[in-house]
Design a protein around this nucleic acid. Structure first.
Lengths: 257, 257
DNA sequence: GGCGCGCTATTACATGGGTTAAATTCCGCG
DNA sequence: CGCGGAATTTAACCCATGTAATAGCGCGCC
């Protein structure tokens, strides 16, 4: 697929940060050797964040785009009364806040859910790259478009599905994205969030998330022990969550190199 | 600001479709004469749609990006049970479905709310333009990022605000976007949607939208007659809706031409 | 100028999910 | 191993919003 050597599949974390980043972009739009060379020349600094630590705070002018290497990171907004709303959940292999490249200020917070390792790239370097290497520009644009597509599905999820569907939908999404990112099977995984955080993501309270997870378990759609989730009946869960993968745009772009 | 002659301000609809489109992009990222010439060379076809007519249906492979010239257009998804969710409301001067340029299939419907005039551009032409003229690529990317930012605010609105705040927020957003688009004052405008459609946009029922609009009127925040809305107390409405303009990213990008 | 239809308005009643609070389990740390 | 704080679980109660039904209104159309 790629016109430059694909890194050995299998042990992902053996790859260098920049190779993982390159692989992700190449998955969005197929790149050529010169593009790959330009990406490999990017100045990247790898940073560690502790659980709970903020990478970016709302209103700040953020100077970096991030690529998540390990751990889980959320993006959220504080809302006048009602607490906060989580607007996105990121897992290793995701870009985060590439919008900083073209938007003047962050309109939300970015926070590590647990210890996280990220690659940080200066926005100027990113901008130059997108400008000078048009296919990389397209890949970044496409990355943003897929993220927007996920947002719009969340709007539908929160706006028009009841708690049971909503949570089933979230579990399906996390499972499929995990699997796509090569982080393991969709049938068994560890929930990276507390029930309160799930509530913040789905517009529910922690109490009701608890009730709902229990209900899904009582229906034998899932099994739980601690934070470990086993999907006992994938097709049933998918149906309850009214979940389809279309909005994740997993298919490759039919666009020749 | 623009390095090519800015069209006369004032009577917007006198401008040709392509000039309006150019002006919008130039507002996102400042373009040069060569960029402007490339845009002016775009093959654009102007199309009319009747109220209720679909421009794009979910699942179809859409061959066009659109630029709205007159009327109002919504994008929405059907949800398993609970009806539909409106995910975006477009007014003249908005791009619609530029994601079709880089995503294989539409994951939502696009429908005219009332009679609408749109400029349609083939996705291939758009893609070539974004690739060959990098600053135009950046402008389109930025356009998509702002749209995504609006999505994320809607997630917060629907997820964490009660009906009163939600509807106040929507009114503020529509008012400000109207004003920014040069369509009139934020203090007095016509709601382009029925109460049922407002409900579909905010995850509420038509009945409750009606109750809530009445409540806002009883508080003297707005006045209504038919679909005409007058904002009687902008600051009050803004506060109830917990509305700020940050997420609309109205400021110009600090990026030299 | 009145018929029909879609939208708005309003009421009565039902319920999903919020709130509060307290008990229980989990887990990191000394 | 045992302590303390955080997360989960459960229960009782309540309210914001949904549901259903019906009436009123406005406007295009014959």
């Amino acid at each position: 697929m790629a016109s430059f050597p694909t890194p050995k599949p299998g042990d992902i974390s053996d790859e260098s940060p920049i190779e993982r980043l390159l692989r992700r972009l190449n998955q969005r739009v197929v790149l050529d050797e010169a593009d790959a060379a330009a990406i490999r020349a990017l100045p990247v600094s790898v940073k560690q964040f502790e659980a709970g630590q903020y990478l970016v705070r709302e209103g700040n002018q953020s100077r970096h785009a991030f690529f998540l290497l390990e751990g889980f990171v959320i993006r959220h907004k504080y809302v006048g009364v009602g607490g906060r709303q989580i607007i996105a959940i990121h897992m290793p292999g995701d870009f985060m806040d590439i919008q900083n490249v073209l938007l003047g200020h962050a309109d939300h917070n970015v926070q590590a859910l647990r210890a996280a390792t990220v690659a940080a790239i200066e926005v100027e370097a990113m901008l130059d790259l997108a400008h000078d290497r048009p296919r990389i520009g397209l890949a970044l644009w496409r990355e943003s478009l897929i993220e927007a597509s996920i947002y719009s599905e969340w709007i539908a999820n929160i706006g028009r599905r009841d708690a049971r569907s909503r949570i089933a939908h979230l579990l399906c999404e996390l499972a499929v994205r995990r699997e796509e990112a090569g982080l393991g099977s969709r049938d068994s995984f560890e929930l990276p969030m507390t029930q309160e955080q799930i509530g913040d993501a789905q517009g529910l309270t922690a109490v009701h998330v608890n009730r709902t997870l229990k209900a899904l378990q009582d229906e034998s759609l899932i099994h739980r022990s601690k934070r470990a989730i086993q999907v006992a009946n994938w097709e049933g869960l998918r149906e309850v969550g009214d979940f389809t993968t279309g909005y994740l745009h997993l298919e490759a772009l039919p666009l020749a190199a």
